[in-house]
């Protein structure tokens, strides 16, 4: 028996919206500790990793670990039927479920929707992601980072991110010219302006902006984002989801020939 009830169902809707351009189908692994999901884009350049802890759910029960293979497109269609204020419950009684039940309830419990989504059997392509002690960590406004990526992608499809003790520089070079945005440490009390740099070792890495722009669809999940980098490592972009868990994106760097 598996049942997970999320009080703020809108969080689940936002998560699916954030990843639907990146991955087509995912395995959600349910265990006693919560839900986890890891999937790569078709080019195996980017990876999304979701972890939702059981204690973040209103109700959570998972008698034995199960894997739920979902088509993101079909999941999106069902979630469109959930109101932003609804609770969302996932449920199945079977051990090897062929479908997953969804219940959407409004606040007054005066409207209850029930859907059943057919499950897919997907081979698990999971990668071993080592716990990395990143040498450069940037915490900043997710809206601000999203804006920087959007603005720079009009000049080039590739951005170089260079950190130093007191600032991070985003540089682009394209046919029309070049540009850079430098953001300094800023302990402002205004969320949108605050920038927190923890630079043990400076890094200079290059990434494809189109992936960063896809990651930034998660901006509605958290007002802050953290960029985690070490030389010769994929970038890890993390959106923490209050009291529930985190949505992480990994992106392999580009190397200049």
């Amino acid at each position: 028996m598996f049942e997970a009830k999320l009080q703020q169902g809108v969080i689940f809707k936002k998560i699916v919206d954030a990843i639907k351009d990146l991955v087509k189908s995912v395995n959600i692994d349910a265990s006693t500790s919560g839900l986890s999901m890891q999937a790569m884009d078709s080019a195996h350049v980017a990876l999304v990793s979701l972890k939702l802890n059981e204690n973040g759910f209103k109700d959570y029960r998972c008698d034995r670990p199960i894997t739920l293979g979902l088509s993101i497109e079909n999941l999106s269609k069902i979630l469109k039927c959930a109101g932003n204020d609804d609770t969302i419950t996932l449920q199945t009684d079977e051990e090897e479920p062929s479908s997953l039940k969804f219940f959407f309830e409004n606040q007054q419990a005066s409207k209850i929707s029930e859907f059943s989504l057919n499950l897919m059997s997907l081979d698990s392509e999971s990668l071993g992601i080592p716990d990395t002690d990143y040498s450069s960590v940037i915490q900043m406004s997710s809206a601000e980072f999203s804006r920087i990526c959007k603005e720079l992608s009009s000049i080039s499809e590739t951005v170089e991110i260079e950190t130093s003790k007191e600032s991070v520089k985003f540089s682009v070079q394209g046919d029309i010219g070049a540009g850079s945005i430098t953001v300094k440490n800023n302990q402002s009390d205004k969320d949108v302006d605050r920038v927190d740099l923890q630079i043990d070792q400076p890094v200079k890495l290059t990434f494809a902006l189109r992936y960063l722009n896809m990651f930034n669809k998660a901006v509605s999940l958290s007002s802050t984002v953290s960029l985690n980098m070490s030389e010769e490592n994929p970038l890890m972009v993390e959106y923490k989801i209050d009291d529930l868990g985190s949505l992480r994106f990994y992106l392999a760097p580009k190397i200049s020939d």
Binding site: L127, A208, Y250, A252, K254, S256, D257
Partner: peptide, 14 residues
């Protein structure tokens, strides 16, 4: 021009 690396250059398949 820059070459895009793959995640399998960094993470091993489980």
């Amino acid at each position: 021009l820059a070459t895009q690396l793959l995640l399998s250059n960094f993470f091993n398949e489980m």
